[in-house]
């Protein structure tokens, strides 16, 4: 893959693994960790899981387009990042936050290449044929919003065996980047059919999951593979750093005042109010 090389980054990164939790807590802790980065804290890479299974919605996603009536009945949370809806069930989720000057590049696309590059590295280390959609020989039209995140295909989507594995999305401000991604261990096609209207569902033939790629272990067991790929691909050193008491307090405030707020979930598209 042209353009992928190890770049030495300046600050150590925190490696954080948290237990399965509800969607509002997961998003709140992500935001609290990202707040820490914005105020000068170390960058972080976090791995986590969801319980109960939850539909996450993109920051400005219009709930009137592409989602079934059933989608209003399942646990839901609106993410701070863009993109379409994702059903988080049997999967590994990662999130990361850094300052823009923690990277040696500027711009959205360049940052995606670096910050998603570790996934390509990880999949290749397992012997899988992996790369970005933009480099795929069969790349057709890329781009365009999809109410179901996995239904679309973007330049920096990751393909394994020619099929999209998971999805990634960013939120950026002037100084920092927050990104998270969903890596399904087993895609629940029946759930996706219940949640997304016909014409808006991921094409099962164009998507894949870890099990289909050949991963026979648990999602948890994949964390060391991804962490090592991140460490070597980006040239980072790890700093121990579970969430601090302050971050957990901040997360609880964010959970209570934003991510568990039905108005935020339903109408967040029209709100820029920050807690």
């Amino acid at each position: 893959m042209e353009g992928l090389g190890v770049r030495q980054l300046k600050r150590p990164w925190r490696l954080i693994v948290t237990d399965a939790a509800p969607g509002d807590w997961n998003m709140a802790l992500d935001e609290a960790l990202a707040d820490g980065v914005r105020t000068g804290g170390l960058p972080f890479l976090r791995f986590y899981f969801w319980d109960p299974a939850t539909l996450s919605l993109g920051r400005f996603q219009n709930l009137q387009t592409g989602l079934s009536e059933h989608a209003a009945t399942v646990p839901r949370v609106r993410r701070p990042t863009g993109g379409g809806g994702i059903w988080h069930a049997d999967e590994l989720t990662y999130s990361l936050g850094c300052r823009q000057d923690d990277l040696n590049v500027t711009g959205v696309k360049a940052s995606f290449e670096i910050l998603c590059g570790f996934l390509v590295e990880a999949w290749r280390s397992l012997g899988w044929e992996a790369g970005f959609a933009k480099d795929a020989a069969s790349a057709g039209t890329l781009g365009g919003f999809a109410p179901a995140c996995f239904a679309g295909q973007e330049e920096y989507d990751i393909l394994v065996g020619g099929r999209k594995l998971g999805g990634n999305a960013q939120r950026r401000d002037r100084t920092s980047i927050f990104q998270h991604g969903s890596i399904p261990r087993v895609l629940d096609s029946s759930a996706l059919e219940r949640l997304f209207l016909p014409g808006f569902r991921p094409d099962r033939g164009a998507t894949t999951d870890l099990q289909s790629c050949g991963w026979s272990g648990s999602a948890q067991e994949l964390i060391p593979v991804l962490a090592e790929a991140f460490r070597t691909r980006l040239g980072v050193e790890w700093s121990a750093g579970p969430p601090t008491a302050e971050e957990l307090d901040r997360a609880e405030t964010l959970r209570r005042q934003r991510f568990s707020d039905p108005d935020w979930t339903q109408n967040g598209a029209g709100r820029l109010r920050e807690v």
């Binding site: 993109g58 920051r59 400005f60 701070p80 990042t81 863009g82 993109g83 959205v108 995606f112 781009g143 365009g144 919003f145 679309g152 973007e154 920096y156 990634n168 999305a169 960013q170 939120r171 950026r172 401000d173 002037r174 820029l272």
Partner: peptide, 24 residues
């Protein structure tokens, strides 16, 4: 942003979502 709002230089005032990134 909201009409009538008084803003200062450097204040976050709007957001744009593209397919994969939401930016302030």
């Amino acid at each position: 942003p909201q009409l009538g709002r008084t803003v200062s230089s450097g204040e976050a005032v709007c957001a744009v979502e593209a397919v994969k990134a939401a930016a302030d």
